[in-house]
Amino acid sequence: MQISKADFIIEGLITQTIDHKMRPSLTYGQDAWRRLKLNKIAMLSLFILIILTLMCILGPSLSGYDFKTTNTLQLNFPPSLQHWFGTDPLGRDLFSRVWQGGRISLLIGFIGTFICITVGTMYGGISGYIGGRADHYMMRVIEVLVSIPSLVMVILLSLYLGSGMLSLIIALTAFGWTSTARMIRGQVLQIKQQEFVLAAVSLGASTARIILKHLIPNTLGIIIVDITFTIPGLIFAEAFLSFMGLGVQIPNTSWGALAASARDNIMFYPYQLFFPSLMIALTMLSFSLLGDGLRDALDPKLRS
């Protein structure tokens, strides 16, 4: 005799109503995205950042002028239909230069942040999880690094390494990771007390596996927020170095370098300073607003 599943009925169970009351289950990311979407300011910032990034990718080829071709017949032209942002003292098209500079600025921001966050997360994770004497000495090292004013150290390092993109990134990241490391360490100190870590330990997971697979994924929220503050910080620092003549070298350029060189002509051609400064300010503004929004979205407990 064949008995199918349909022959069995659980008495007193009304399946339909239970199904209807259930909400769709959301992953951490979906949940955070849902909350972020409600934040208009954060979404606007995200939109501006996407536009800025797209313009940095496409911009230099949009105007039809090469960013390093000089033109002695068109020196210091004000913004016009022909040159949307005007031209600089060597007759180079500023629209192309602003977006070409943006490429460098953003690239330094992104690569530098990637290094800072990776090193900082690893360092903080190891220090926090192992604890004890290792933690003590690792924190001492950070204390020493932090007590050197960062700009001073960056200047010295870039003097030593010479100028160029790579040395710039090394100089900026050599001391940039300490705040991340401290933050991750604090977070790990809290998380490592929880039961799932004990469970992993008793199942025989190695220290490296616990740090990489159990602890760090749980700090993802603050890592993401930290990223949104590190990127503009690095772009800012690069701008200062460029101002002091320690930034990227000609013919390449960055927003900081453009703003710095425009200072010489501020009396007569203020627009040359306006555009690169506007881009720096927009990037900074958008990243910090997005960071605030992300913090609320990723961890509603922290909402101020």
Binding site: A239, A259, I266, M267, L273, I280, A281, M284, L289
Partner: peptide
Amino acid sequence: AILGVSIPSFVLATALQYLFSV
């Protein structure tokens, strides 16, 4: 507050020079 940390001080200083001096 956000604007204050978004504008590099050398840009602000130059803008001030342009406005008040020039």
